[in-house]
Amino acid sequence: MKLKLKIWRQKNGADAGAMVDYDLDNVSPDMSFLEMLDTLNEKLILDGDDPVAFDHDCREGICGSCGVVINGEAHGPEQTTACQLHMRAFSDGEEIIIEPWRAAPFPVIKDLVVNRSAFDRIIGAGGYITAPTGSAPEGNSTRIPKPDADEAFANATCIGCGACVAACPNGSASLFVSAKVTHLNLLPQGQPERTTRVLDMVEQMDAEGFGGCTNTGMCTVSCPKEIPFVSIANLNKEYRRAVKSGRKA
């Protein structure tokens, strides 16, 4: 395959950055999207150019490190991570526009790499449970209704990649926050912080500068883990419940 690539190049956070065109030959349809970028980088290095920086780690679709906006879609045309997207999803001679996640709370570090520490601070605000450390307790000692376990698990699959923010026209982190709140608030282990969790996480989400949800649903179609859109309704329900309870801390 031959490709015409348009890639966002930015030296660092202070640099203005610009789109740069690259022609790439000999791309195999069986390559992953990241392997295609590796191939480009090999060429750039041999030519003495600066390789394109992009985030990646497991390349198995489970870590949440990778993620670029491909032709306007977070993680590209298939509902999976960029590392699990293959070049057969594109056609020969196609122009591919590659950009970093765009959101004020996700500043560009270099090229396609953005700083997603804002997500960590949201998790730090309430995305945890208080549990004694030590050996794992007997799994069946806490009984959880099957539908709750299923819904909690579906939401727990969120890998925090940030595609929801990238895809949202408002740069909203609602799907991410809703996945964490739904996951933890459904389970018995999450009950002690049920009220403060949602208040604190939403407060942090707003403070980071993520936009609000306008229910466009763009997040859920870009989510590689298929976090359901109703999780946002559940976040709002949990928020309403927490506000009603009037607990301050």
């Binding site: 765009r102 026209p169 408002n170 936009g211 306008t214 466009t216």
Partner: peptide
């Protein structure tokens, strides 16, 4: 608030509902 959350727009456009 929403507009401020996306200061740099995408080059490739994608349509919403």
């Amino acid at each position: 608030h929403d507009v401020n959350a996306r200061p740099v727009k995408y080059h490739a456009k994608r349509k919403g509902g």
